[in-house]
Simulated assay, not measured.
Amino acid sequence: MREIDLLTSVHTSTKRDYLARVNAFDKSECAGVAKRFGYDYWDGDRRYGYGGYRYDGRWLPVAQALAATYGLKAGDRVLDVGCGKAHLLLELTRAVPGIEVAGLDLSDYAIGAAPEEVRPLLRQGNATALPWPDRSFDLVFSINVLHNLYNFDLRTALQEMMRVTRDHAYVCVESYRDEREKMNLLYWQLTCESFYTPQEWLWFFDQSGYTGDYGFVYHE
């Protein structure tokens, strides 16, 4: 297992008003709407999630970093668990011509709003039951998704990722290193269910039998 930072540049490109998230709106109501993972979460008002997920090219460097880190080449098969609108998968097909990509997401809305080039390669489903045979992919990754699961489902999802990969796995999740980052995460999050320090995440990876690579994002 290696800690690999692929997301800090993307994560820090968004400016966040943490206090407004809890003072300006009914946070519990907003979280309830967000957890439906429908239009409001992806393309509705900012209080419910992304505030309009208009792609700006930010995932291309992440795709290039994934390709370089794992030596991806034409013919390799890659799965994104929790792919959302699948812009990262689209960028992977551009970064590595001839790569075979697949994605899974809980949200029918996100899949329906994905780019036409990759939409046929996406499936609606749950990370706890990946609909592919054992050892189907050269790389299985999940970015900023698995912290949205309760711990019992998180364990199963990690085991499922290990089941369907024949080589590499990468997980990136939200975490916190001190009380300020913990409070910022609590203020900002709408869908998170697993709130762990890096040390707790590593313990959970071990308990789940996850042996792939990992990364964290922090709300500084």
Rank of each mutant, 00 (worst) to 15 (best):
E91F: 02
S175N: 10
V33Y: 02
R155G: 00
G49H: 07
N184Y: 04
E181T: 13
A169H: 06
A127K: 06
F152D: 15
D40K: 11
A34G: 05
A129V: 11
E160Y: 03
A86Y: 09
Y70A: 04
A68D: 12
D45T: 01
L146C: 06
G209Y: 03
S175R: 07
H219Q: 12
N23E: 12
A24E: 14
E160K: 01
N144Q: 12
E29R: 12
V173G: 09
M161V: 12
T93N: 00
R46I: 14
L185Y: 12
P133M: 06
G84S: 08
G32I: 09
L190I: 14
G44E: 10
A63C: 04
A127Q: 05
V171I: 13
V101I: 14
T8K: 13
L122Y: 07
R119T: 08
Y218W: 07
A129R: 14
P120G: 09
Q199E: 15
S13W: 10
Y55H: 11
R123P: 06
Q64Y: 00
Y170M: 03
T191E: 14
G51F: 09
Y39G: 00
E200F: 04
P198D: 12
T197K: 11
R94H: 12
G215F: 08
A31T: 09
D167M: 03
L88C: 01
D5E: 13
A102G: 03
A110M: 11
Q124Y: 01
I99M: 00
S136I: 06
P115W: 11
A63V: 02
L106R: 11
Y109K: 03
V145E: 08
R16F: 10
V171D: 07
A102Q: 08
R2L: 11
L185G: 01
R166W: 06
P61W: 09
G125S: 08
N144E: 13
E117V: 12
D153M: 11
K85H: 01
R46Q: 08
E117C: 01
M1K: 03
Y176R: 09
A74I: 09
R36V: 13
V33W: 05
D167N: 10
Q199K: 13
L104N: 02
G49D: 10
L149M: 11
G51W: 06
D167Q: 14
E160F: 03
D105Q: 04
G38F: 13
